[in-house]
Design a protein around this nucleic acid. Sequence first.
DNA 1: GTCAGGTCGTGCACGTGTTCACAATCAAGT
DNA 2: ACTTGATTGTGAACACGTGCACGACCTGAC
Lengths: 228, 228
Amino acid sequence: MADRPRRIPEATVARLPVYLRSLLQLAGEKTGTISSERLAEMAGVNAAKVRKDLSYLGSYGTRGVGYDVEYLLFQMSRELGLTQDWPVVIVGIGNMGQALANYPGFTSRGFPIAALVDADASKVGHEVHGKRVRHIDELPDIAAEQHIAIGIIATPAHAAQDVADRLLAAGVTSILNFAPAVINVPATASLRKVDLAVELQILSFYQQQRDNEGDGAAAPAPSADAAG
Amino acid sequence: MADRPRRIPEATVARLPVYLRSLLQLAGEKTGTISSERLAEMAGVNAAKVRKDLSYLGSYGTRGVGYDVEYLLFQMSRELGLTQDWPVVIVGIGNMGQALANYPGFTSRGFPIAALVDADASKVGHEVHGKRVRHIDELPDIAAEQHIAIGIIATPAHAAQDVADRLLAAGVTSILNFAPAVINVPATASLRKVDLAVELQILSFYQQQRDNEGDGAAAPAPSADAAG
DNA sequence: GTCAGGTCGTGCACGTGTTCACAATCAAGT
DNA sequence: ACTTGATTGTGAACACGTGCACGACCTGAC
């Protein structure tokens, strides 16, 4: 089998889910084929980038026609590992953890919330979103029983590294960190972070630049694509 | 005045808030000076990057010694526009919007939640986090009265672009989008996005790659720094 | 069969970001 | 004053990501 020499750039991987969302919408509208130009418009990027990104998956387009929506959807889902469900565990059931537990977008997109855990004994036993909160010490058992590979950290900053270590020890090698703290994981694991305060501070920087316009040159268009 | 030829790269801007957080911690521990190497460790990057990033702010370090924590803290806060508060408006008071409204990290870091708005009349008038929810039609008045420059979109996807347009029309030129949708803003505005499903799908991709290890080469360490 | 219109796949050039390596500088000890 | 050890600031090389431009290819009409 001629295995293509695939190694998808990180920037491309980060955009694939956005294309996927556009394709799902198109499939719902019974659109048969889509050109790179239209898909680019939907995804908020330019057409050349779409073509290059998709070319990493293979040559799934037809010159003069475009891409078959259903076929591309399937190939992209397969590439992203979305032909299976990925149960997730949420650690830290405070404001943010509860909101995440109630967020319908996870389950509907193939990431069912399999477990909620917290270190606070007063929270254990409570029900959130129909799930009973369990103690974090049970993490190894929970992860093994439910085959959990992805963990979401929604604890205060000071607990984040310890939770990450516990997740890793329990075999959870993909981590999404909401806590406002830097955490370290070995190269054999994946880590992505979402830090709300950081996002606002970045916006603040550019906002201030615009407010101060009139000094030197105008602000150099910081807008558009960012935190993916 | 010799104005330095500053134009801070986007990648650097995205890291400044992380340095800032580390500096705040150091200041709390009464640390007087910090080397680029230790700061790099705290921020999860390498020392050369720290020095280059900080050099865009000016030459605030002392060779052989390091950086004065308090002084650097001040300069960085100034650069990020954090010497003033930035009141924010949250649009869409569902699960996520409520959680964001209750999140203490915003106010404590200089982003007080000045207003909550929703298009759903049944939500208007309710109190969330001590704030009354107001109707989105009042947005222009609210933004003007409270000098709001930053808006957070926490609506369903289908409403996101319309809300963004309304925010812009009300003079809000910095937008943080939580809705799972691509939205367009003019180059005179800033947009950052946080998409939870996208983050999980990226993790899923690399997780699958690790699960399939043993085929070709090992997974090329996708971990660490990402979504800022 | 040929032509016209349309769209993909990709080589190439460019810009941005990262890392190395080292001169420049400072503090402290003698 | 000199030496030693530490640390910054930055030039230069390298890696990565982006966008243009164009050849390759497909479809449909006549």
